[in-house]
């Protein structure tokens, strides 16, 4: 186990370097001259003066060989300098830290919903196995997995914003505005949680200690909270990590629809606007965040009881 963990940790460095390399080359090979694009942003109404263009090219060093440019960019990263946004002129790090807050708030709200929904419904589903409730819950879970999150988002906006007017449809004014997008994210990601909790509980229920507890006269709910929950905690945490990864990736489209100023929306608009420093920096940041979450998942997974691991395998 130790060996696996050490191995995974050692893998981090080359992985991160490769991520940086990929993020850089995607933007490097994008069509269009960055100097011209930057010049356009700095001077939208001016023409393309060749002398000015040459000046910008020099400034950005875009005539240097690929590796030199990559090294320069990489060296910047090491000192925390990701360059400045072409569009706004602000440092990329500043833009990132301003926006990551919204993405994290949204992801954690989504996680909260997915945990609450997942554990409650999973418990009910297991407790009333093969009853109509179980069947109904399982049916809704599989349906939920088949509905795209943006459809759910539009549908919720229609119901809760335009019809009932409970929530504002756009932008972030107060924490209340995280409920709808968070619920959408949570719902789209909760199916796996429900299934995991259900299968794990069923697995646990069949084991000896539950039988003993039952003999001792503990109620099912007491058994769940005193015994089962702690045994399935690790797989839940592991799946929470997996969900977090998919939420950070999936929040993009939700941020887009609900107009939350998170990193996803900003990255897409930067890619579209050919704001290279932002695109490269944000792609890199995405990669690094996810690599570390994945590392965390792998490590936690190592501690999961092999018996429980079996039931978790299907979902993680």
């Amino acid at each position: 186990m130790k060996k696996i963990i050490i191995n995974r940790v050692l893998m981090i460095l080359p992985t991160v370097i490769t991520i940086a390399f990929l993020a850089f080359s995607i933007m490097y090979f994008s069509p269009g001259n960055p100097a011209e694009i930057l010049m356009r942003y700095r001077n939208p109404e001016g023409g393309t003066d060749p002398a000015a263009l040459a000046h910008y090219e020099e400034m950005l060093g875009i005539n240097d060989p690929f590796l030199t440019q990559f090294e320069n960019w990489g060296a910047g990263i090491l000192t925390g300098d990701f360059g400045e946004s072409f569009k706004t002129g602000n440092p990329v790090t500043e833009e990132f830290f301003y926006r990551i807050g919204y993405t994290l708030m949204l992801s954690f709200t989504g996680l909260a919903f997915s945990l609450v929904i997942g554990i409650t419904l999973g418990f009910l589903s297991a407790e009333f196995k093969d009853s109509w409730l179980d069947n109904l819950l399982r049916f809704t879970q599989s349906l939920k997995m088949s509905i795209p999150s943006f459809w759910l988002a539009l549908f919720f906006i229609y119901i809760f914003s335009t019809q009932l007017r409970w929530f504002s449809a756009f932008g972030y004014n107060s924490p209340k505005d995280l409920i709808l997008p968070g619920l959408v994210l949570g719902l789209s990601n909760s199916s796996r949680m429900v299934r995991l909790v259900r299968t794990c509980i069923l697995e646990e229920k069949g084991s000896g200690y539950v039988y003993t507890a039952r003999v001792k006269g503990l109620s099912e709910i007491q058994i769940f909270f005193k015994h089962i929950l702690k045994n399935i905690t690790l797989p839940i945490i592991t799946l929470t990590g997996v969900s977090l990864v998919s939420m950070i990736g999936g929040s993009l489209i939700i941020e887009n629809i609900f107009g939350l100023p998170g990193i996803g929306t900003y990255l897409v608009s930067a890619i579209v606007a050919k704001d290279y420093p932002v695109s490269m920096g944000f792609l890199f940041a995405y990669g690094v965040i996810i690599v570390f979450i994945n590392l965390f998942i792998d490590i936690v997974y190592q501690f999961v009881d092999p018996r429980v691991r079996d039931c978790a395998n299907a979902e993680i």
């Binding site: 609450v116 924490p175 209340k176 505005d177 409920i179 905690t233 690790l234």
Partner: peptide
Amino acid sequence: ALALLVIVAVLVTGFTGCTGAKAK
């Protein structure tokens, strides 16, 4: 593990608590 779960739960409820706050 239970402690970890509690921490996660606290974080999570903290967030939902925030989201429940009334808008100005």
